[in-house]
Design a protein around this nucleic acid. Sequence first.
DNA 1: CAGTGCCCCTGAGAGC
DNA 2: TGCTCTCAGGGGCACT
Length: 279
Amino acid sequence: MPELPEVETVRRGLMRIAAGRQINGIDVLYGKTITNDVEEFRQALIGQTITDIDRRGKYLLFRFTNQLTMVSHLRMEGSYFNQPTGGEVDKHTHVIFHFTDQTDLCYRDTRKFGRMTLVKTGTENEVGGLKTIGPEPTEQDFKLDYFIDILKHSRGKIKPFLLNQSHVAGLGNIYCDEVLWMAKINPEQPANFLSDTQASILRKSIISEIKRATKLHGTTVHTFKNAFGNAGEFQNELQAYGHAGEPCPRCGTTMIKIKVAQRGTTYCPQCQPLRGQDD
DNA sequence: CAGTGCCCCTGAGAGC
DNA sequence: TGCTCTCAGGGGCACT
């Protein structure tokens, strides 16, 4: 499930296999992947060249000549890879961009959740979740004052709060469990019960964890592969996610798994106790 | 407006 | 063996 570090890894791969290439044909094998009219999408892009690939949160932004931007979200299992034109096409490949250099950029997505939307460059912030997306989880963009302020105004649980991309961009289920474990915060803690100290520690954990995971090319669980078909290395670094029933690396207590807002959630009941407002 | 819950999808794995 | 059921989950959307 690509989260920010995985999407950034994909972006870097795409810069090498797609940037600078000119499109001379597009096959759309599963129409729902494209939210535009499929024929208009194809006609608008044929003849265009990919000039750059940017990222905002978990969204990829393919920049084309002719002032066009394709917003691509991988959701659960979307992936890109390249191969020589005419290569084999499996049943989960839904979109193929043919380049003039006789290579293809293929989009594969087993669960068909991923979406692509073509818009005029400059209007991409009106597409889906980009309308309300929060700051990037970096030292410069994700300010402590801002974080403390939005926490105080939310009575919901901290885990779904962090999964909400309008609060801070890029966190998914895996990194949420990791940063809450690092910061010793219970996933069901109401957001407005966090102390300023906890908020500060949590913010630091988010920034450092995303940075560290990006450096290690993301986490490979299930099927995530980067644009070169390689796995990330960060799965070896996970402390909480996927470790239910095992001893907490910090205190040895058995980690437990519960459901929070429909999401599987692993945490240490000893290190991450539920606290009241005055604790 | 904030929060909740359903839905989109398929494959893996469990249970019978 | 083979069927059915459950689970995995990001984000859009309807609803409270």
